[in-house]
């Protein structure tokens, strides 16, 4: 049994929407008691429909938003108890890459400076050291160091995603949260970036939390996966086990909705009957290592 690198217990984030002086706002339970753990070197998938709380879970884990309740442990340490300076140091080990390679890079900075910035913030190395390191990072993600002085708009979407990745890797993190890293990319470019993520994982012993919409992709790269629905995990386990025998009605609907790239394959759509989901059902083990929130 491996020791988990990351452990999340009862993570909860409630947002209050609307409301004012005389009115109470409505509470959105974006994340509602989520627990999972990720082993070192593993790729753990998080899937679910839009608004189910995937990104909020990731952001809470890095404290980019403060969770309402719960526990996040990284290498055994309680991340939520860290002081802000301790947290800043911890971010060296935990990085996030985002869906949109267009808006997540500062358009007025050269690629070189985008990748260099975290090194400056963390005061790592002399100017020459950093220059060499930035060029090395550029090569690591498959970019040509001759293009270091270009601006983000001079790169294609896939190349911009590589710049974001080079920046995330600058501090030699062990754990990366990839929030839909290829959703905004062209189909022919997605595979390049996914292959790169897998290569880097091997070379640098990285651990990934991989947030995604595309279940075909998740099946390809995640050994284990959790399915979120309305802020909660409704099913979790080995990816192959879940694809083979989904137990929760939402998972069944989700898997049956994957477009089949075979015009002759039979289509058996399972529609989700919202009444079939019991919202207070706890996760129970339906098979060894395979949990589902079913009665």
């Amino acid at each position: 049994m491996n020791t988990p690198l990351v452990e999340v217990r009862g993570l909860t984030k409630h947002f209050t929407r609307g409301g004012g002086l005389f009115q109470k706002g409505t509470v959105v339970k974006a994340v509602d008691g989520v627990s999972f753990s990720i082993d070192e070197g593993e790729t753990f998938g998080l899937v679910g429909e839009s608004g189910s709380g995937k990104s909020t879970t990731g952001r809470c884990m890095l404290r980019l938003v403060e969770p309402t309740a719960g526990e996040v442990r990284y290498a055994g340490e309680d991340v939520l108890a860290f002081s802000s300076s301790r947290m800043r140091a911890a971010r060296r080990h935990m990085q996030m890459i985002f869906q949109d390679p267009y808006s997540s890079l500062n358009p007025r900075m050269k690629a070189r400076d985008i990748v260099d910035e975290p090194l400056i913030i963390h005061k790592l190395g002399s100017k020459q050291d950093r220059e060499a390191r930035v060029a090395e990072l550029f090569r690591l993600v498959g970019l040509d160091p001759a293009h270091l002085d270009r601006y983000p708009h001079e790169f294609s979407g896939g190349q911009r995603q590589r710049i974001g990745l080079a920046r995330a890797l600058a501090l030699e993190p062990k754990f990366i949260i990839a929030d839909e890293p290829v959703s905004a990319l062209d189909v022919s470019i997605q595979a390049q970036v996914i292959n790169l993520l897998m290569d880097l994982q091997q070379r640098l012993q990285l651990t990934y939390l991989f947030i995604a919409h595309d279940l075909r992709l998740v099946r390809h790269i995640c050994r284990r996966v959790a399915v979120m629905y309305l802020g909660r995990i409704v099913e979790m386990g080995d990816t192959e086990a879940i694809f083979a025998s989904p137990a929760h009605p939402y998972t069944r609907a989700l898997l049956s909705a994957i477009p089949v790239t075979d015009p002759d394959a039979p289509r058996q759509r399972v529609d989700l009957d919202p009444d079939s989901v019991s919202h207070d059902a706890a996760l129970v083990e339906v098979a060894p290592g395979h949990l589902a929130a079913v009665r």
Partner: peptide
């Protein structure tokens, strides 16, 4: 041919077939 090959349909851990270069 490249587009069809780049659709993930393998099992966990396999490399994807990518089309090199940029659009």
């Amino acid at each position: 041919q490249g587009l069809l090959a780049s659709i993930p349909h393998g099992r966990t851990g396999e490399r994807l077939v990518a089309i090199d270069g940029v659009v």
